[in-house]
Design a protein around this nucleic acid. Structure first.
Lengths: 228, 228
DNA sequence: GTCTATAACAAGATAGAC
DNA sequence: GTCTATCTTGTTATAGAC
């Protein structure tokens, strides 16, 4: 990729990286909707209009950051799957850990892609494609395990100490056992998570009838908590 | 509540409501971080400094909007549970539907409470308490069903037509059955939903060891998709 | 006492001429 | 790429109306 580039092209690429780095810093400080080309330029000791040579608009800069973020989680997820030895379940666990710690390392970039949509910004098609990388990593685990099928009976994971959910138990479900409290937390998580992802546009084109999918997921979460 | 109030107090309350309404409109148009006291004042034909009689700062206005939003989802959830006749599972379903449609009606207010945190805004303790209303509605269903316990075997919900997940199947899991595709979608949803809620501060104080809870949930989602 | 309006401040953003 | 004139922001001090 780098070979054969002219000197000018290399300088340009380097400066582009510098601009993106400064933009990332700005993003972390003021958030996506306050990100301005000017402040990025100031940070670099450049004049605002010079940035327009590299990014034609604020939205283009934002798009670059979004692509970078999707690339980041996607790469982390994919690398985790590839490095993880062992069973498909082990690989899935590794993916989850990797994605979570990427989020902890880059909270603003996480918010950029999975948080509220930036007002006034219309995501170009390229971001939709970039978003596929992580879902591809997830489903890749399943593709590599062609025999895997959802079981009739899901084996419950290894339980954790009761103390883990103690604050919630005391506040909301006194006297209930840890399994019940945990299932309630997960049900609430599914509900909020699913509505958020829907409203923030992450199921676009994924389902022909999101309501059916939503109903199914909520039913499952409710039954898992012991409701009938 | 209204009785016994002086005329002045009533006027004050009315104007406070008007300001909040204008702020809500502004929020819907420009988003939380671009919400400005001046534009709210302009919308009302008032002068900016006059607003300070009602809200001591921009952040106070934002806090009021956040409280209102939590109150809104919470009330919708609670009302749905109370109105729904039938089994605990029916009441849970009603709650989910109510929460989702509240989100569809008020996407900006949803983003305000469950989306990215507003940069530079520190949530006061009152918002934490207000957030409890919806979790209380969720757990209330369980408290009213004291016998409910997570089953060893979760009865799968009624399936939906294969066409519902057709786009995802074609893009990511060609040839797999609907149950597998659905479980994969739900696993991805759990992952992103859980990390988002954690990073956005919604598990604060809920668990002593979030990592254990996260591992448990991801394990469950993976197993449900047939991984082992 | 309670309110609103005027004016001002330091930031920062924006537009355009050069 | 530079400079300037004009805009907006949150916030406060002050003065006057009811």
């Amino acid at each position: 990729m780098t070979a054969g580039q002219s000197a000018r092209a290399r300088v340009r690429a380097a400066l582009t990286r510098e601009i993106l780095q400064a933009a990332r810093d700005e993003l972390a400080e003021v958030g996506p909707s306050a990100l301005s080309l000017r402040s990025v330029a100031r940070r670099l000791g450049m004049v605002p209009s010079a940035l327009y040579r590299y990014f034609p608009s604020r939205d283009a800069l934002l798009t670059a950051l979004i692509l970078e973020a999707y690339e980041g989680v996607g790469a982390a997820a994919q690398a985790a799957v590839e490095e993880a030895a062992g069973s498909p379940l082990e690989r899935w666990r590794a993916l989850c850990r990797a994605v979570r710690s990427w989020g902890h390392l880059h909270p603003q970039q996480w918010a950029l892609i999975y948080g509220s949509p930036v007002p006034g910004y219309a995501a170009p098609e390229a971001t939709v494609r970039a978003a596929l990388r992580i879902t591809d990593a997830v489903t890749g685990i399943l593709r590599d395990a062609p025999g895997a099928r959802p079981p009739e009976v899901v084996a419950p994971p290894a339980p954790f100490p009761d103390a883990v959910v103690e604050p919630i138990r005391q506040a909301l479900l006194p006297g209930r056992d840890t399994a019940t409290v945990t299932a309630a937390v997960l049900a609430w998580t599914s509900l909020v998570g699913m509505v958020s992802l829907e409203l923030f546009g992450h199921y676009k084109g994924g389902s022909t009838d999101f309501e059916a999918l939503f109903g199914y997921a909520m039913d499952l979460a409710g039954r898992a908590a012991g409701l009938s």
